Every structure is written in structure tokens, then in C-alpha cells.
Amino acid sequence: MDEGFFQRAYDIVRQIPQGRVATYGQIARMMGEPRKARFVGFAMHSSPGMAGGVPCHRVVFKDGSLAPGFAFGGPNEQRRMLDAEGIEFLPNGKVDMRRFQWEA
């Protein structure tokens, strides 16, 4: 995937407000690339993260599932980061998307 795609994804993810989440597909649609949700995932995995101003922990799967544990340095790290922002989870461990999905 080209560097331009990743940068465009990062630019959108930087706009997700604290206390909200977006989906990989939502980011892809906002980029005008509706069939490239998986590539958005690749971009998030390669991102500089919060240190680089990209809050990629706010990007989740459409059902509210979190990234595999390795993505953030540990199995509970993404959840810890979202908890710290006030994001609430359903009993099944997924983000409550009806309440916390970003309406961009």
C-alpha cells in the first residue's frame, strides 16, 4: 500500500474525538475507498500511534471488537486506553457502538 493512503487514513483518524471510536470501514468510506477497510487496518498497525498524534486505539471492528493483543503491546492495552477515555463496553467485551461510534 502506498504511503499516501496511510497518511490519508492517519489524517482522518486524528479527527476522531476523545471518547469516540470509528470502524476500519468507516475510515475507508471517509477516504473514498469503501472497499479498503483491511488496508486501513494495515495503516493503523503501521502508525506512529499516540506518540505520532494518531489515536489508532480509537479504531475498532464494526461489531465493536478490538484489535488482536499484539497490536498495542498487550492483550488488554487497547481496552485500557479506551477505558481511560470513558468508552464503555458491553458484557461481551465489545465497545457499545450505539453509544460511542463517532458520527463524522
Rank of each mutant, 00 (worst) to 15 (best):
Q78Y: 11
L66Q: 08
G4E: 14
K36P: 03
A9T: 00
D63W: 11
D83K: 15
S47Y: 00
E103T: 13
F5N: 02
F72T: 04
R14M: 14
F6N: 13
G49E: 01
G49N: 04
M50Y: 09
A51K: 14
M97N: 07
Q101R: 14
D96Y: 07
M81Y: 12
F100A: 05
M50T: 13
R79Y: 02
I16A: 06
S46H: 13
E33Q: 15
S47E: 00
D96Q: 08
F6S: 11
G64Q: 13
I12W: 00
R29I: 02
F5Q: 01
R14T: 13
G86V: 08
D96C: 08
H57R: 03
S46G: 06
S47M: 00
Q78N: 12
M97K: 09
R14I: 10
A104M: 03
E88H: 07
F39N: 15
R38K: 13
M30Y: 08
Y24W: 04
M1A: 15
G73H: 11
G25K: 08
R14N: 09
K94T: 12
V60E: 04
G49F: 02
R8S: 15
D11P: 01
C56P: 00
F72Q: 02
G73T: 09
A43R: 06
R79A: 07
P48T: 04
R29W: 07
C56F: 03
I12V: 15
E33V: 05
G86H: 06
R29F: 05
V21P: 00
F5W: 02
G52L: 04
V40C: 04
S46I: 02
G32K: 12
F42R: 08
R58F: 06
M81F: 07
Q26S: 12
H57C: 07
M1G: 15
A37T: 02
Q7T: 11
Q7K: 14
F42I: 11
E33G: 03
L66E: 09
R20V: 00
P55C: 10
F42A: 12
L82E: 03
Q78G: 09
R8E: 15
V59C: 11
R99H: 13
P55S: 12
E77C: 06
G19Q: 06
R99Y: 09
A67Y: 14
F5C: 00
I27A: 02
R98K: 10
K36A: 05
F100K: 06
R35K: 10
C56K: 10
C56R: 11
P17W: 10
I87T: 05
G64N: 10
A28G: 09
D83T: 15
R38Y: 06
M81N: 03
Y24V: 00
R14F: 09
D11G: 11
L90C: 14
G49S: 06
